[in-house]
Amino acid sequence: MSQKSNTFPEETEFLKKARVTAEEGALSPDQWRNEYSVLITKYEELLKIVQVLTTQATQLESKLEKARAQLELQRKALSFEVEGLEKQIQVQQKEVTKKAQERDVLYDQMGRTRMMLIVLFSVLVVVVAFTMYYLFIDTDKMITFVKKVRGIQ
């Protein structure tokens, strides 16, 4: 047993000495009785210590179990909360996607409208340009054209 893990160094030392005494065996009956009496005292003491430590260890286990149960409850509560938040995020994501789609549709419509406006403006420009040309530059043709339209020779 390493020194670090030995929680009973004095007891271990006593045991070693007792073992040596038993192995040597060169003691008188009185000395044996004395050694045995010391052994009983030490054993009794050790038993009391073990009883105290066992009681405390049981108390610690009980405390740990309570703490574990409390942690489990908190874990479940957190899990429930996380689940709720995840659902909220999903709903919001759907909302965002829907808004994005609506925006895209709107952009499409705006694009088409813009294109139509450009075409109309271009047509208008052409018509105005022709009109101006015939009104101010080639007036004879214009008069001929109007007469033709009205059926005047």
Binding site: T7, F8, I49, L53
Partner: peptide, 11 residues
């Protein structure tokens, strides 16, 4: 305190 400490306290 842990059980090892308890033994040390006893010491």
């Amino acid at each position: 305190f842990n059980t090892s400490s308890s033994k040390c306290l006893l010491d």
